[in-house]
């Protein structure tokens, strides 16, 4: 997956970049299955690899599909990004070990969630719909705002031939 990400950085043909990002999403979904997050993996495979790729291809259809060679030097962004990375690794060393059952994340509210209070065997569904329903309300607001913004942006286009692009 890391290799895919690096190749993605280096390719200039945007079509290859889009296809590689779909591949990257599928690999990420596999990793999520390995980490027991099956619901998230399904969503990532459907949304990340499916809808995002379709949207990117639709945008590529309307734009030029070749990236021009950058005139700026890549060293300043590289140095900035690596220093941020070193800082983050330093911070990550203070976090609990991988799969440590005594980590705070497993102690706080989750034992109660796993009591099956709402009689739904899939705990993710139960938490999403019952305990944290307001999250979904906020998410719907964001999606609605994004959709309204896209409609407002794309409606003012001059050529009517390209009007039937689906804007999510």
């Amino acid at each position: 997956m890391a290799i895919t990400a690096v190749v993605l950085t280096l390719r200039r043909n945007l079509f290859a970049v889009v296809v590689l990002s779909g591949l990257y999403s599928f690999l990420m979904a596999t990793v999520l299955v390995a980490l027991d997050a099956v619901d998230v993996a399904m969503t990532e495979a459907a949304v990340g690899a499916g809808i995002s790729t379709v949207l990117l291809l639709g945008a590529l259809h309307l734009c030029k599909s070749e990236e021009s060679r950058s005139t700026r030097s890549p060293w300043l962004p590289l140095a900035l990004a690596s220093s941020v990375g070193v800082l983050l690794i330093y911070g990550a060393l203070g976090l609990p070990d991988f799969a440590d059952p005594n980590a705070p994340i497993h102690q706080h509210v989750v034992p109660r969630y796993l009591q099956n209070e709402v009689d739904v065997p899939n705990v993710v569904t139960a938490v999403l719909a019952s305990f944290r329903g307001y999250d979904t309300l906020g998410e719907t607001t964001v999606v609605f705002t994004a959709g309204a913004g896209i409609i407002a942006l794309l409606r003012r286009r001059k050529s009517s031939t390209e009007k039937n692009r689906d804007g999510k």
Binding site: V110, Y113, L128, V142, V143
Partner: peptide
Amino acid sequence: PLPHVLILTAIVVGVATLAL
């Protein structure tokens, strides 16, 4: 299960911002 729920929300929001 709690991070799974949070990330499910984040994925959908992510694709909405990508579309925008």
